[in-house]
Simulated scan of single mutants.
Amino acid sequence: MMYLKDKGIALIEEDYRKRIIPDIKKAFVQESPGFPPDFLVALAKSGILASSGALDDSFLDALLSRPIEELAAKWHWAGMYLDMGRMVCCYGREREKWKAACAKTGHARRPYYREKRREYLDCHHIDALMAEYPLRTVMPQQACGSDREMLILLKAYEAVFEGWNGCLRRFVKYEMIDAGLKIQVKQAFRLEVCPYCNRQYITSFQVSGKQHVTADLDHFYPQSLFPLLALSLYNLVPVCLVCNRMVKKDSFGNIWNPYRAGFSDLVHFEVDDPQNVQALVGSNDEFILKLKNDAPEGSSEFEVTESTIRFFGLEEIYQSHKQFVRELLHKKHAYNETYLRQLQDIFQKAGVSMADANLILYGFEMDKDRIGERILGKLTYDIVGDSRRQHP
């Protein structure tokens, strides 16, 4: 998962808003007479509806072209929407993690699960949600006590959340982005490699005067679950077709958002469990390729990183690149320190830069800031090792 700088959004956001906002407003005017009164009241209380009953322009600007965290912080209802949605959508995955952790650590199940349920509700601001939308079925303290009570609470809020979504789907529609505008969004970032997996190319080309881009626009928050964000530029991630259609699809979990941060500094690839010495020098591929989590164990960064690795199946997918790693190991062994110094002298006399020399030797400049711009850049950077980044 690579950090996706938002400079691309800055290039297109003004034109994007001009083209999308009128469609949202028109759809809202047409559909709002059929909305439940409590939905309109909730929007009005948060300032999303102007005194005229129309959608507030500054809210629409933020919805389309501001970071999702800013949207949630400024517009109270939007913050509640995200808290409620994440709470009802992520519980199943979190429960599986608790089960595995409990079995691994040997904690007593009841108190462990009770604590985890409490933490889960707290991180989704259950007290604030209860203040706005109190339940008659079960209270949070009861929900912490058993899985059955917890599911009752989540089911009740899921009904509220889906009620909102039913309204949102009628005026916030992904179909409002036409094919040409989708191409603009994909091209704005000038990506060459998928930011999710760092192993598939993204290519722009023309055929018979028609522009094409070999990328999908993934909704980080799936539009099927979070229709409010169906048109948010900060929810549209240009990624390879494999990651979008075969791996992530409509799933959602506690994973790194590439618009907030990548995790290349929190993980590293390494060769693990070699069956013989020959594997370490690239003579065979009798080893396992591991993706290690370097974040402090027990920290939130560790948990999100671990969840992201599992969510995308990165360690399993990268086993298909063992032959590539074998070649890197062979080069690393062949280019010993003496040979590297000799090459350094040759390259310097020929006026070849360090970056170009590394590109010749390893197919990558060894520039940490450009890992996300090269296919398998992170893998190459980690396997070659610190000592080789200094040569020539």
Rank of each mutant, 00 (worst) to 15 (best):
I383R: 09
L217G: 01
L11K: 15
P274K: 08
M176A: 06
A334Y: 13
F59K: 07
S51L: 14
I20P: 00
T380Y: 06
F287E: 10
M150R: 11
R118G: 13
D216F: 00
L225P: 03
G209V: 08
D57F: 03
I375L: 15
Y133K: 12
L135T: 14
N244A: 00
K378T: 03
I24F: 00
Q348G: 02
S300K: 12
H391Q: 12
N254W: 14
P238Q: 05
R326A: 13
D23R: 12
V160L: 14
Y201P: 08
R148P: 00
F189Q: 07
L43M: 14
V242M: 09
C240W: 06
S320M: 14
I48K: 12
E70S: 05
K74Y: 03
A188T: 04
G209E: 05
R199L: 06
R95P: 01
F364I: 03
Y339D: 11
L329G: 09
K292T: 15
K45L: 09
D272A: 14
E149D: 13
D265I: 02
M246C: 06
W164N: 02
P392C: 13
Y157D: 10
L151D: 14
G47K: 10
K74N: 03
I309F: 08
A188D: 06
D345A: 12
D218M: 00
D367C: 04
S300W: 11
Q344I: 01
Y81N: 00
P33W: 06
Q141H: 11
Q278T: 05
L55E: 04
A42Q: 10
V193S: 12
A10K: 15
E158Y: 06
A54G: 13
G166T: 12
L191H: 07
A73I: 00
D127M: 09
T214L: 11
N254F: 15
K248C: 00
S224L: 06
E94D: 09
Q187Y: 00
T203S: 10
F312I: 03
L314K: 01
P111S: 07
D61C: 13
L291E: 05
D265S: 06
G282H: 05
S52H: 09
L64R: 01
N244W: 01
G92S: 11
L151K: 14
Y112C: 02
R388Q: 11
S224F: 03
T137G: 04
D272R: 13
P37G: 03
R19I: 01
F39H: 04
Q342H: 12
R118P: 01
L359K: 14
L280P: 04
F220G: 05
R66V: 00
V41R: 10
G209C: 07
E327R: 14
G53C: 02
V207H: 11
D250E: 13
A73F: 06
P296H: 02
A100P: 00
P37R: 12
K248S: 02
L135F: 05
V138P: 08
F263N: 04
L280C: 14
Q319T: 04
Q187M: 11
E162W: 03
C102L: 09
K292W: 08
L49N: 07
P140S: 10
A159E: 09
